[in-house]
Design a protein around this nucleic acid. Structure first.
Length: 296
DNA sequence: CAATCGTCCTGCGGGC
DNA sequence: TGCCCGCAGGACGATT
């Protein structure tokens, strides 16, 4: 599930590959992915336009055009973007990769739903097994004046995001289970299930601990663990425990460093106890019951 | 009004 | 071997 590090990996890849390219065509066999606008109107709005910048806000990819529009792509659960070349096989209703390598070999790169044709002969594809991803067209003005993301919390990796800012956020948050709060995009941007589990393992706090019981030292630990884990994950090109791939169709490596997510039944790296899997807010939750004991 | 529930969607893996 | 069912869960709308 693409979270801040995976989306950042994608955005950095796009900045390297598609800046100053112009869209020549657009097509999808899953029109529901394009929200709030007819597919044809979306196509008309972007064809002939050039990509002048690519940015990330929370888990959203923002593609700035040389017009008053910005393309927003949210990868949701199983989406990722790919750069390559495909041709549509009408008989089987699927895009077939024309370039050998991970695009043709890795089954997780098989679910191409949306294709943007670029003026360098390559294509930008949205691959999404479960079709949860969404594409929207925003007004550049609403992105630049912040209205598009007024409900979204601060970016944890911004230089301007200080420990004091996090202390204030927790002070204003009266109650709630810490894991759900970390995953709440209106509290802080970009953290999803994998990194919430990893951060809480690192700081030895139980996922169900209420935020009202956190002390100053806990918040300080969360602040530094949040930054270091997200940075480590970006450096690792994201987490490919499951289906995420970078724009070249390659796996990230953060799953090799994960200590909690998907580790149920394994020994805790701190104390040797067995890592437990439970559910918090309906989401799979992994923790060490000894290191991350619930306070009473 | 905040918390919880249902929805979207499909491939995969466990169980029989 | 093959089929069926449950599970994975981000974000949002509906409901309690």
């Amino acid at each position: 599930m693409p979270e801040l590090p995976e989306v950042e990996t994608t955005v950095r890849g796009l900045k390297r590959e598609v800046l100053n390219r112009t869209f020549l065509d657009f097509s999808t066999d899953t029109p529901k992915i394009v929200k709030g606008i007819e597919t044809q109107e979306f196509k008309d709005s972007i064809v002939g336009k050039t990509i002048i910048d690519v940015k990330r806000r929370a888990k959203n990819i923002l593609i700035f055009l040389n017009s008053d529009s910005v393309i927003l792509i949210h990868l949701k659960m199983t989406g990722h973007l790919l750069i390559g070349d495909w041709e549509y096989d009408k008989k089987n209703s699927e895009w077939v990769p024309l370039i050998k390598g991970p695009m043709s070999d890795d089954p997780y790169n098989r679910f191409v739903r949306v294709v943007f044709c670029l003026n360098d002969g390559r294509k930008l594809a949205l691959c999404d097994m479960r079709k949860f991803a969404k594409i929207e067209l925003l007004k550049k003005s609403e992105v630049e004046n912040g209205n598009a993301f007024k409900e979204v919390g601060p970016e944890p990796l911004d230089d301007s995001f200080s420990l004091e800012d996090l202390v204030v956020l927790f002070k204003n948050k009266k109650r709630g289970k810490i894991k759900q709060v970390l995953m709440d995009q209106s509290f802080i941007a970009g953290i999803g299930n994998i990194y919430a589990n990893e951060i809480l393992f690192e700081v030895k706090i139980n996922p169900e601990e209420d935020v009202s019981s956190l002390n100053e030292n806990d918040i300080k630990n969360i602040y530094s663990a949040m930054k270091s884990i997200l940075e480590k994950a970006i450096e690792s090109q994201g987490d490919s425990f499951s289906d995420f791939r970078n724009i070249y169709g390659e796996r990230g490596k953060f799953q090799n460093f994960a200590k909690a997510y998907g580790k149920d039944g394994e020994n805790c790296q701190n104390c040797g106890n067995i890592i437990i899997k439970s559910k918090v807010g309906g989401r799979g939750t992994f923790y060490c019951p000894k290191c991350q004991m619930l306070r009473k």
